[in-house]
């Protein structure tokens, strides 16, 4: 069943890798003189199983392919991302550290004392935009987001938010402002935990990214009530989900996903990672990451990413009021 070449490649790999991983990672780059020292670690500032975790792992695998380096992923969850970002701040000047960034990079510094903002780091690449769906349990009485808003006027509606200041919390805040209602919020640490809470009936509704609930939506365990996007999704599975605006709630908000390097790294290191990111953006791995997670592609590098972060910062500031 197995071709001899697989066997060859396999045995050669294991033997050489066990003995030479270190050497290989120092010699096999093609981008000129510079190469990161040692193992590269991608920090994910959220628990395993959420959208951030998925993007961190995709980036690690994609860059591994683009550079030939050995890249591992490390989850450092807690404090709605603050623990991971704070840890990353301690990595200043290291050229072998990356972090899977998302909205918390901008929203955390705006909402509390964290000792960093997006200018503390070196932005490398924006991958794309991820919109949220308002999701409820399959057997819930709610049919639309309008129903949910209506219900909050007469009873308590409990919503999960993964991260006290993440996209979930901002989206909910925008709905509250737009409709002049109030939700009860329970904080969780990742989309995975929120899914479990919805399935267990511990919360009534939750905003989630499509990738976090694709399996459950398909099986009917969870239902999407509306999408907080400007237009309906083009992805087949979500084409039927109306936008919030269609239901009279004028809220559309997306979060970016990308990756950043620590502050204070050398220009060579920054150029190296941007070149690697550009290679990754051309690959099938990048395209399938965007499609598998039902995101909108928006590849931006280096300075363009910084400009994008500046805009986002202004938007979030407005949203948090």
């Amino acid at each position: 069943m197995k071709s001899p070449s697989t066997l060859y490649a396999g045995s050669a790999l294991v033997i050489s890798a066990v003995l030479l991983t270190g050497c290989a990672s120092q010699n096999s780059q093609s981008e000129g003189e510079f190469a990161p020292s040692g193992n590269v670690v991608v920090t994910v500032p959220f628990a395993a199983g959420g959208g951030s975790d998925v993007s961190g792992r995709a980036v690690a695998a994609g860059l591994e392919e683009a550079t030939g380096l050995s890249i591992t992923v490390e989850n450092r969850e807690g404090g709605a991302g603050a623990v991971g970002y704070a840890h990353f701040q301690g990595q200043e000047g290291r050229d072998n550290a990356l972090l899977a960034a998302e909205l918390a990079l901008v929203s955390l510094p705006l909402s509390q004392e964290v000792g960093f903002d997006y200018t503390s780091f070196t932005p490398i690449m924006n991958l794309g935009s991820d919109y949220a769906l308002l999701v409820t349990a399959g057997d819930s009485e709610f049919e639309t987001c309008a129903d949910v808003v209506e219900a909050t006027r007469s009873e308590t509606v409990v919503t999960a938010v993964s991260g006290a200041t993440g996209i979930d919390a901002i989206t909910i805040s925008l709905v509250e402002q737009d409709q002049d209602v109030e939700f009860d919020r329970i904080p969780y640490e990742s989309g995975g935990e929120v899914v479990a809470a919805l399935l267990g009936g511990h919360v009534d509704v939750a905003p989630l990214n499509p990738s976090e609930v694709a399996g459950q939506l398909e099986s009917g365990d969870l239902r999407a009530l509306c999408a907080f996007s400007e237009e309906r999704y083009e992805y087949e599975q979500l084409a039927d989900v109306p936008t919030a605006a269609e239901q009279g709630i004028d809220v559309a908000f997306s979060q970016f996903r990308g990756f950043i390097a620590p502050g204070g790294i050398s220009d060579e290191a920054r150029e190296y990672w941007i070149a690697a990111a550009e290679t990754y953006a051309e690959s099938d791995a990048y395209r399938s990451y965007i499609e598998d997670n039902m995101m909108q592609p928006n590849a931006l590098f280096g300075d363009d990413f910084v400009a994008f972060l500046e805009e986002t910062n202004a938007d979030v500031q407005a949203a948090l009021g």
Binding site: G78, G79, A80, G81, A82, A86, E113, V114, A164, P187
Partner: peptide, 10 residues
Amino acid sequence: VGVSTGFGEA
């Protein structure tokens, strides 16, 4: 000790 879970406060 450290940044707290759920609050993000050091």
